[in-house]
Design a protein around this nucleic acid. Structure first.
Lengths: 114, 114
DNA sequence: TGGTATATGCCGACCGTCGGTATATGCTGC
DNA sequence: GCAGCATATACCGACGGTCGGCATATACCA
């Protein structure tokens, strides 16, 4: 059905659209982007990263070792960029649609519903 | 985490934001709204309807019998309207965010990624 | 010595959706 | 007359993505 992607997945791709980033940095970036509303679980993040890599939407950029801790950086692929663009257009279209109906609703029966 | 709602759920609420509608009509409306991309399964629809009713976002408007077939009409509640408004704002915000990053990306390294 | 931040990863559970089936009735075409 | 499709609601098992928690390891601070 060409399913739309879920919010966490979308936010992960958006984070990586900025610049290559390692997993933990993605968690922080997503938290900042959403004003603290979405705090990705480690399980969600690394599972999504593996999945998106399998789908060819992201790929490993490089690996670094900082203070004897591994940092694996990911970046968007061309396919990932296209996918994110398409998804963004979808979100816009649906927002516009809902706004139109909500507006019409208010002008018709301005606040009479339960 | 104040989870964002899924696409099918959002589209069901959007359909009902227009006017009270019975289940099967929602399926058709969603299909038209998405240009045939999203074709809700009966299982998805009626399960979501029950769930949304339990959450107080929609309620039964009336029941009709047409050609000895039952039609149960649903409508948005005030809470449902607020919820849909909030969700719409969220979609817009996220679309804007992703677009900003995609634009910056293009001006910086115009199409050099894999 | 304990707690927090960094960083990756695995695990079971949950929930919303998928896909199919059941149950009826009415309409259309062969 | 009967098959097939549209209408309309409802239940079911399966699946996939996320959740929440835990494990592991190092560095820093109180």
């Amino acid at each position: 059905m060409l399913p739309g992607m879920n919010e966490p997945t979308f936010l992960i791709l958006t984070a990586l659209a900025g610049e290559p980033m390692h997993g933990y940095a993605v968690i922080e970036d997503v938290e900042h982007m959403t004003d603290g509303r979405v705090r990705l679980r480690a399980g969600t993040l690394y599972a999504a990263l593996d999945r998106l890599r399998g789908e060819g939407l992201i790929e490993v950029d490089r690996e670094e070792v900082v203070q004897s801790r591994l940092r694996r950086y990911y970046r968007l692929t061309g396919a990932g960029e296209q996918s994110l663009e398409a998804e963004t257009a979808r979100l816009r279209a649906q927002a516009t649609l809902a706004e139109g109906r909500l507006r019409a609703r208010r002008t018709n029966f301005g606040g009479a519903t339960a």
